[in-house]
Design a protein around this nucleic acid. Sequence first.
DNA 1: ACCGAAACGAAAATATCTTTCACGAGTGAC
DNA 2: GTCACTCGTGAAAGATATTTTCGTTTCGGT
Lengths: 321, 321
Amino acid sequence: MKETFASASGGRRAAGGTSAPPAPAALAAKVRTLAPSMTRSMQRVAEAVAGDPAGCAALTVTGLAELTGTSEATVVRTARLLGYPGYRDLRLALAGLAAQQQSGRAPAITTDIAVDDPIADVVAKLAYDEQQTLADTAAGLDTVQLGAAVAALAAARRTDVYGIGASNLVAQDLTQKMLRIGLIAHAPGDPHLAVTNAVQLRAGDVALAITHSGSTGDVIEPLRVAFERGATTIAITGRPDSSVTQYADHVLTTSTARESELRPAAMSSRTSQLLVVDCLFVGVAQRIYESAAPALAASYEALAHRHGALRAGAGAGDRRA
Amino acid sequence: MKETFASASGGRRAAGGTSAPPAPAALAAKVRTLAPSMTRSMQRVAEAVAGDPAGCAALTVTGLAELTGTSEATVVRTARLLGYPGYRDLRLALAGLAAQQQSGRAPAITTDIAVDDPIADVVAKLAYDEQQTLADTAAGLDTVQLGAAVAALAAARRTDVYGIGASNLVAQDLTQKMLRIGLIAHAPGDPHLAVTNAVQLRAGDVALAITHSGSTGDVIEPLRVAFERGATTIAITGRPDSSVTQYADHVLTTSTARESELRPAAMSSRTSQLLVVDCLFVGVAQRIYESAAPALAASYEALAHRHGALRAGAGAGDRRA
DNA sequence: ACCGAAACGAAAATATCTTTCACGAGTGAC
DNA sequence: GTCACTCGTGAAAGATATTTTCGTTTCGGT
């Protein structure tokens, strides 16, 4: 509306003259620059603001005035001097600054998880590690091998997926998804059953082994059997030089992240394996889209009625004590 | 103050009220999570907010109401639903988000996976999406609820984990890990078995339900039974307002990513659930470190010889019964 | 000690946010 | 098909927060 703050600085061009738009992160610097031209009360306010942006962002004009032992008018005057139209905008900038600082102080997550880490750090570190694992895996995946594996799976008469322990869950995940798009897949959890299944395979079938170490006998054995029966074999492993690859036509490599006592290798290998499995699934779904799409739709439909009436609306009104 | 439907739960604190403090950067995730439970007008507001945080932060309630063609009341309601006390606080968070986006990484919009995407793109998109899901989940996790859940699990005499379909795999993952650190856990896959198990629980036990939709009857039912038997109940769901939370002492929210035909919701919900489960596991392992560490070491030891023996015959042996 | 200018805060004035309330659209029951 | 009912919605009243005004206090100079 009107350049009211011109009066504060008299005819001086220094402060008000800066047509600078609200400073984003340069606030601390601005405070220091302008401090000399501030009155005592204003300095107190500026100091509080620069010292604890996050805290001040949470305060109203009155709150900040009380905190600094000054008045609302002084707070507003300070905000003006700093280049904002009013306190409201200073507060907004403060919130932004706080958020930046918050996200900036994230380097803590690169260290291992310690026994006494607060729960929030655990969350951050785990999420970060898994993100890292995903990036590594994606970068290290051989798309040629992947493409070949997809082609084999899409054309397979039936598919066996072998995995033990944590890897078995990944195997089941793939199996569940393949079934959903109309493909025939099994993930025997029992090593004996796996071998029994493997014996049934022949050319045109696919056997897929999932093992992080690449040396899990219970998984290698059925793959070997399938391999010898003439099935196309695929291995998903973190060790491309391990013995499982002897019997694999296609090898997909997962990433091996560092592990620690509190973060077993199983955790990152699982993440990595799942990404590979997802890629396989999507690749296959693309290839057989014509038949996959209706099958997917049908499975959604079938599940719909298992989900009770949604709309738990009752609590929508007022919570908050 | 009026937990109207609390009566059903017999006086126990109903968990519906997300005590979540204002989310800092988890806003986009929260919008997606809560969008389904929003009315049309509120969705318009949420959409505007998620789409242009910086722009919206510059607007007053009235301005945002006009922009979205709604009323101030609706804007405030939306802010409330997103977990803020009022519009003022939403605006503050928005400013923070804008600042982060500005300085930090770009929001980077992913295009959906198309049927004719080359396999390399599929890998990249999937990896990116899952990374995003992890970030969203981590940002949106309520550490207070998480801490409470960890405490309950660490102290539990036994733990039941309920999940169906893809969620059952997550349940098994948690179970496997808990067993490794010497805790007693089960993940019944059969709904009837689950209920049968649940009946055995009582105070001091823990029941954990994993369901993305929050309305999977087969999972809610055993949780309800456990709840009524006095066990501590935890829910991991993508819909914090769904019916499963009625019977949950602690609610852990997973993020809901947009899905597409080739990328079923199950994929990102699984990623999200696994992160939560990992956090629970590590948290528990920290708490009972004294007993967990030796147990972990012992399980490594026990597995070691299963890997060493390359020639499969050795390890598996045939012990016909 | 007196004068004047600047600093400062109390309170009025204004803008903004929040709550209330009534209307209308949609839905299920009969 | 109509009726009763609930739920979503916005207009306007009510409550807060911010900005402005203006008188008092403080301080330096003469």
